[in-house]
């Protein structure tokens, strides 16, 4: 992107130009924008998803609701909003390992995981995890046993996925509050497992 004949302004400047135009035309309110940014930058993160997972680990009835109707069960916590209209929960088992991608762009369940990390948006992850999931997961530090099936789920404009990891050994008797900090974002995308404490 060096000296093309008609060189476009840098994104920072175009962003500023666009924002000033939209404010002038009354299409955006900077205060509302600030609120959205703060919400997703600071308040909504994988902690929401971790609470959902810990609840499913400790409450069989909640887990049943979560697997049957993800969006509604997640809403019981008050988590909802853009990119959370239809969340399907995938349960990791001894036989199947689920991993999530959005091959076309970056669809991701914002209300439970926040905004996606950069690797999730990266062309290499998006293309390769479909073709060679076992290898990609290995590169990301997760060795899935050879006899375990890997299922790759491609997010779409209709469906976002949340992975329900397996509860780690050594946590018998732990309550949801104690379990929550163990749950990582990567485990809820399916590129990691939840390690034993």
């Amino acid at each position: 992107m060096t000296d093309a004949p008609t060189r476009r302004p840098e994104p920072a400047q175009r962003t500023e130009a666009l924002e000033s135009l939209l404010v002038e035309r009354g299409l955006i309110d900077p205060a509302v924008m600030d609120k959205f940014i703060k919400t997703y930058e600071q308040d909504v993160g994988p902690l929401n998803g971790a609470k959902v997972v810990a609840a499913a680990w400790t409450d069989p009835e909640y887990k049943e609701r979560l697997l049957a109707e993800g969006t509604a069960a997640i809403k019981e916590f008050g988590f909802g909003g853009p990119q959370g209209e239809h969340i399907v929960v995938l349960e990791q088992t001894d036989d199947v390992h689920h991993v999530v991608v959005c091959t076309l762009c970056s669809c991701y369940p914002w209300p439970v995981l926040g905004l996606p990390p950069s690797w999730y948006k990266d062309p290499a992850y998006r293309a390769r995890v479909v073709r060679e999931p076992r290898k990609v997961l290995h590169e990301m530090g997760l060795d899935v046993p050879a006899d375990k099936k890997i299922e790759v789920w491609d997010s779409s404009s209709e469906v976002r996925y949340l992975v329900l990891p397996q509860r780690p050994a050594g946590t018998d008797g732990w309550d949801a509050e104690a379990l929550t900090p163990l749950v990582t974002r990567d485990a809820m995308v399916g590129v990691a497992v939840v390690a034993a404490p």
């Binding site: 994104p11 920072a12 962003t15 955006i28 924008m33 600030d34 959205f36 940014i37 853009p82 950069s118």
Partner: peptide, 18 residues
């Protein structure tokens, strides 16, 4: 990664919301 990215994000989300 950069401040403009958050502005671009915020614009899209608030415009869709509105």
């Amino acid at each position: 990664a950069e401040p403009w990215e958050s502005r671009a994000f915020g614009m899209a989300v608030s415009l869709a919301d509105a």
